[in-house]
């Protein structure tokens, strides 16, 4: 399964590195990354393949949320289907 990780907050050094390091540690393969600045908020969106991940998705999601809290950023990790169903017919 593929998941979408979104990171929202104030821009700072090393965000991409920290999130992708966690993904690598859990064997989640980063497929694509985009970054943008929206109303002085930093937004990073990653698509990752978690089908080979070493931990269940719900656990990885918790770890990512905790990482975000530590950085003062808001991190969401959600199944890609939620976006497909809402925005594609």
């Amino acid at each position: 399964m593929k998941a979408i990780i979104t990171v929202l907050g104030k821009d700072m050094v090393g965000i991409l590195a920290k999130v992708s390091t966690l993904c690598a540690q859990r064997n989640a393969n980063v497929i694509e990354v985009t970054q943008s600045i929206m109303q002085d908020m930093f937004a990073m969106i990653m698509m990752v393949d978690v089908s080979e991940a070493s931990v269940p998705f719900l656990e990885l999601e918790k770890e990512l949320v905790a990482l975000g809290e530590g950085l003062g950023m808001k991190i969401h990790a959600m199944h890609e289907d939620i976006f497909n169903s809402m925005h594609r017919i």
């Binding site: 979408i4 929202l8 943008s36 929206m38 969106i45 969401h76 809402m86 925005h87």
Partner: peptide, 16 residues
């Protein structure tokens, strides 16, 4: 890849 705006729209709907 999904549209960035679409993804952020969904996140915003849930968060705010």
């Amino acid at each position: 890849m999904l549209n960035t705006q679409d993804i952020l729209e969904t996140i915003n709907m849930i968060d705010n």
